[in-house]
Amino acid sequence: MQMQKKINSWLITQVDKGTQTDYLELDSGEFLSNEIIIEVKNSALNYKDALAITGMAPIIRKFPLIPGIDFSGVVIQSNNKKFGEGDRVFATGLGLGELQHGGLSSHASTDADILIKLPNKYTHSYIMGLGTAGLTAMLAVLALHENSIKPDAGKVLVTGSSGAVGGIATKLLLKLGYEVVAMTSRPEYNRDYLKSFGNIEVLDTDDFLGNPRMLSKERWASAIDVVGGKVLENIITETNRSGVISVCGQVLGLNIVTNLAPFILRGVRLIGIDSAFCSHERRSRAWDMIFDLLDVKDVNYLSEIIDIKDVYERSKLIVNGKNRRRIITNNSN
């Protein structure tokens, strides 16, 4: 297929000590230089993307760069035998939107080793309704299971449960039979939404922002935390003996202040979740589990589709904690 000369993309450039984000018409020859070119049907707007787009954190490692750590689309040119014209593919993480041009564009270009063929029964919007958020959530749940936290172990606390990663993690845990407690920063707004997931308790993030004790009463068999900061500090002191905390976010910051007592007196374990660069084998296992657990109806309920041109305004809502659900972008012209 003959490649068009222009593409429509978001582009982040460096300006003085800050960044500037614009939706532009770009020269395809300059930005689509890898072995495979994909016409992007859908992408997604992750928390990391929102930080990059608004300039709130130094996510981008080189400039100028097309943001977007996820995309799904159709191969229109390929110089690799692994993929041919017309193949439906998707990609998450692995440097997209950070080290190389990403998916918030009408077209993307990458090497074959980061692409996965999209099963025929799934749409591009379905896989982007999961994307990095879904993969992260599944890896976080897997970490509990692999460390002997079974559904009968007790309550599992999920922070940021009205957002993308937290919401998907909550749904996955419920599907697997766990007893879930959902934490949200706006319970008056999110309670009914979260209760619609199933029989779960809803807690207010504000109740976890005080200074923690050295050890508190045991409350949680395990937790999945996307928030960090004071919230994580308090969860550590409240986790049961031999409990596991999957850590996969830093909404309240990268730094925590804690003590050794929960770790050496209770055997609490913190496990970091790296969805961006995890191995192909682990990535494949996680996707197989997600496909088994979450159907199209689940993903549609957990997500919302917006036009790609609305990405900047929605990013501002995401970084300010005012967005609910997973955001899918419609990238078709």
Rank of each mutant, 00 (worst) to 15 (best):
L270K: 10
N120E: 13
D27W: 07
P151T: 00
I59M: 09
T258A: 13
L302Y: 05
L135F: 09
C278I: 15
L51W: 10
D292Y: 04
H107C: 13
E39R: 13
G321A: 02
T239V: 08
N120P: 00
A50K: 10
T159G: 09
E39M: 11
L24H: 10
I305G: 05
K5R: 15
V311L: 10
I308D: 02
A153N: 08
L144I: 03
A108S: 07
S105E: 02
E233W: 10
D49K: 12
S28V: 10
S72F: 12
E146P: 04
K48Q: 05
E39H: 15
S196T: 11
L94F: 15
Q4H: 13
S43L: 04
G84V: 10
M128P: 01
I235E: 02
G160N: 00
N80V: 07
K82E: 11
L94S: 06
D206L: 11
H107E: 09
R191N: 10
I127Q: 03
S216W: 11
E39P: 08
I116M: 10
M289C: 01
R269A: 11
L260Q: 03
T258P: 05
A261F: 14
V311E: 01
A91I: 03
E25C: 02
T110R: 06
S105Q: 01
M289P: 00
T54G: 09
I305D: 07
V226A: 12
S315F: 08
G102E: 07
L144E: 01
L51H: 10
K155R: 15
D192M: 14
N300G: 11
E188L: 14
L194F: 12
L139H: 12
D274G: 04
K150S: 13
V89Q: 04
T21W: 11
S33N: 09
R88K: 15
G97Q: 12
K175V: 05
L32M: 09
W10P: 02
S106H: 12
K17V: 00
S332K: 15
L174T: 03
S125L: 02
I224T: 01
L265M: 14
P64A: 06
I37K: 08
K150L: 13
L157Y: 06
L51E: 11
T110E: 06
R269E: 04
D288T: 03
I318A: 05
G267S: 05
D152V: 11
L215D: 06
D27P: 00
D307R: 11
H280I: 09
D16C: 02
V244D: 00
N323H: 13
V89I: 15
L232M: 11
L130F: 08
R266T: 01
G228H: 12
I59Q: 02
